[in-house]
Design a protein around this nucleic acid. Structure first.
Length: 255
DNA sequence: GTTGGTCCGG
């Protein structure tokens, strides 16, 4: 009952903070209303830039409330900050990993991580237990300098679509296929590759009996593919191209 | 229209 009357923690969520805000600034401002436990300004994991909000944790929730009421909508560093009570506690790395929905880097990041583990060891050697030092001295900057190395064909292409993967992975795919997934790219199929896989599977049981069925199947599957908006970019490419060109000219001439 | 550490050691 009374549990709902007060926030779950003493952390304040400060949003719309300036990009160049420093934790010291916040600490100074907020510290006037009570002792502060911790101030943290989250940065984007990849870009290393402030995400535009910050956290200030007080020792006493009353002080937090006091600061909230006094500093909310105040202008700091040229920006009007807004303060709320933070929802939940500081997120654990696993929580962040679980999200995994941030940028196109994560895929590439995962595979280029091996070269990065070295710097990690170095870092870890200094501080015994990172788990306890989290939020204190853990700064992934070292990796940040390695990150922008994504000068491969990948970054040029833009982003990777791993939505499907996250779905299947959530189910039960990760344990057996986690590493086999990273296929470079789907091979360019020539017309007929579909029937090939079919016949391959069929050849296991009846290779000759399936002759007519196979041909039938290939025809049907082809039709199906065309009808169901084939997500694979293979055979109807030239078609769509000419189509789009048509559209383009249509638009051009119409306008 | 923003809620935090993305690392598990061979």
């Amino acid at each position: 009952m009374s549990r709902y009357l007060r926030p779950p923690n003493t952390s304040l969520f400060v949003r719309n903070v300036a990009d160049d805000i420093r934790s010291e600034d916040l600490r100074r401002e907020f510290g006037r209303y009570g002792p502060i436990v911790d101030v943290y300004v989250p940065l984007d994991f990849y870009t290393r830039r402030p995400r535009g909000f910050a956290y200030v944790q007080f020792e006493d929730v009353r002080d937090a409330e006091d600061a909230l009421h006094n500093l909310d909508k105040k202008w700091i560093c040229g920006r009007q900050i807004e303060i709320q009570f933070a929802q939940g506690d500081r997120k654990t790395p696993n929580q962040m990993k679980a999200k995994e929905g941030r940028s196109d880097y994560d895929e590439y990041d995962r595979y280029s991580r091996r070269s990065r583990s070295r710097s990690y060891e170095r870092r870890r050697s200094r501080s015994r237990s990172l788990d306890q030092n989290y939020g204190r001295s853990y700064s992934p900057r070292g990796r940040a300098s390695e990150r922008p190395r994504r000068s491969r064909s990948r970054s040029e292409h833009g982003r990777f679509s791993r939505r499907n993967r996250s779905q299947s992975r959530s189910r039960s795919n990760s344990r057996s296929r986690s590493k086999s997934q990273p296929k470079k790219e789907v091979r360019h199929h020539r017309s007929g590759s579909r029937s090939n896989s079919r016949s391959r599977a069929a050849s296991k049981s009846d290779s000759k009996s399936n002759h007519k069925q196979s041909s039938k199947y290939s025809r049907e599957s082809r039709r199906e593919q065309e009808r169901s908006k084939s997500p694979s970019h293979s055979p109807s490419r030239s078609r769509s191209k000419s189509r789009s060109r048509s559209w383009n000219s249509h638009k051009s001439s119409g306008h």
